[in-house]
Computed example of a mutant assay.
Amino acid sequence: MNASQCSPISGQPLQLSEEEASQLAEELKHQLRCGEVPDANSSSIERMVAGLGDRRGLMRLTFAESLGVVGKAAVPALCQALEGHDNVTVRRAAAKTLTLIEDPQALPVLLKALLHDPDPVVQGSAVGAMAALGAEAVDALLGVLINPKSSSMQLGLASWGLAFVGARAPEALREAAGSEHAEIRAAAIAALGDQIQAQGDESARDLLIRALSDQHVDVRAEATTLLGKLHDSCWATPHLIPLLNDQAGQVRKNAALSLMKLQASDALPALREHLQCEHEPDVTAVLRVSISQLERI
Score class of each variant (00 low, 15 high):
247 Q>S: 15
247 Q>G: 14
247 Q>F: 09
249 G>S: 04
249 G>C: 01
249 G>M: 05
250 Q>C: 12
250 Q>V: 11
250 Q>F: 10
250 Q>G: 12
250 Q>D: 14
251 V>D: 07
251 V>E: 00
251 V>P: 03
252 R>F: 00
253 K>D: 15
254 N>V: 03
255 A>K: 00
255 A>C: 02
255 A>P: 03
256 A>M: 05
256 A>G: 06
256 A>N: 03
256 A>S: 04
256 A>H: 06
257 L>Q: 11
257 L>S: 11
258 S>D: 10
258 S>R: 07
259 L>C: 08
259 L>Q: 03
259 L>E: 04
260 M>Q: 15
260 M>S: 15
261 K>Y: 15
261 K>I: 06
261 K>T: 13
262 L>Y: 10
262 L>G: 13
263 Q>S: 15
263 Q>W: 10
263 Q>V: 13
264 A>G: 11
265 S>I: 12
265 S>H: 11
266 D>L: 00
266 D>R: 00
266 D>A: 04
266 D>T: 07
266 D>P: 00
267 A>L: 03
267 A>S: 03
268 L>E: 10
268 L>I: 14
268 L>M: 07
269 P>C: 09
270 A>C: 07
270 A>Q: 06
270 A>D: 10
270 A>F: 03
271 L>S: 00
272 R>F: 09
272 R>T: 10
272 R>G: 07
272 R>N: 09
273 E>C: 12
273 E>Y: 14
274 H>G: 03
274 H>M: 03
274 H>Y: 03
274 H>R: 14
275 L>T: 05
275 L>A: 06
276 Q>N: 12
276 Q>F: 07
276 Q>P: 04
277 C>L: 08
277 C>A: 11
277 C>R: 15
277 C>P: 02
278 E>Y: 05
278 E>C: 07
278 E>H: 07
278 E>G: 05
